[in-house]
Amino acid sequence: MTYTGQHNDVAVRFDGVSKSFGGKRGRDRWFRRTNEQSAKLVRALNDVSFEVRKNEIFGILGANGSGKSTLVRLISTLLITDEGTITVFGNDVRDDEAEVKRLINRVSVEASFFKKLSPMENLLYSSRLYGRTGSELRRDIKQILVDLGIPEERIGVPLETMSRGMQQKVAIARAFLTSPVLLLLDEPTTGLDPRSKKDVQRFVLDLREKHDATVLICSHDMDEAERLCDRIAIMDNGRIVATGTVDELKDQVRGTQGLLDPTLEDVYMALTGHGLVEEKLMAGVA
């Protein structure tokens, strides 16, 4: 057996990835801005390396601004790395962009739809972009929306009349309809009521079971992370400070700071030196 260094059970690999915003690069250089004029450099990701294994549900826990969404956007080919490489099932996100795009889909906090169009119209459009056509598409859209708890009579009316939680469910349907091999979830259940949260979590587990999907999920929600994730990376200030299963992470801090039976919250506090919830409150509605 030869070891090539590239496991074929690796879904996502980050290798020394850094990404900054602002500063004297790109556009600022064109416009010859002076130091004072150029925006302050924000290092959103700082030398990040990790691997997500195939068929795994991998969680990323981090406070506001720690770089979670930036990480997801880099995988989605919406941003380009400054340094390092990212591969999705062995495809480099820069060199094999088209291939990567076919493998992924994403759900983010903001639903992002054509607000005047109905869920059906929005989902027809987004599914067709992934090559889906035919009469079974309409049937599937209806089925998945009903499964997610959207009343059938709302499927044809403009999305702007729906609550945020319902819109979020349509966003989840959008991603699921394209059966992504890698599903990127950026705080998918933020703003959902407990029941809807459960529905969505059940769907995520289902997608993994039945379709061999790999899921990367960013969250503030410790319970959700603990319930869903096989492994978790804790992110702080653009860096990954720890990776492991929930138990491994707990073991890592057990005994320190008098923690005998640490919760995930305790783990987070111990490893980053600050809380997740308090900071979220202070940051307000981001």
């Binding site: 972009l129 090559g131 499964d147 699921f176 091999v181 039945k210």
Partner: peptide, 28 residues
């Protein structure tokens, strides 16, 4: 849970006529 996605995207074919078919669907 009755919804089961029917199409697995898998790897897209690179044959020219397949690409053309795929892209024209997207254009529509």
């Amino acid at each position: 849970m009755s919804y089961v996605p029917t199409v697995a995207p898998g790897t897209g074919s690179r044959a020219p006529h397949r690409i053309l078919a795929r892209e024209s669907k997207a254009a529509m």
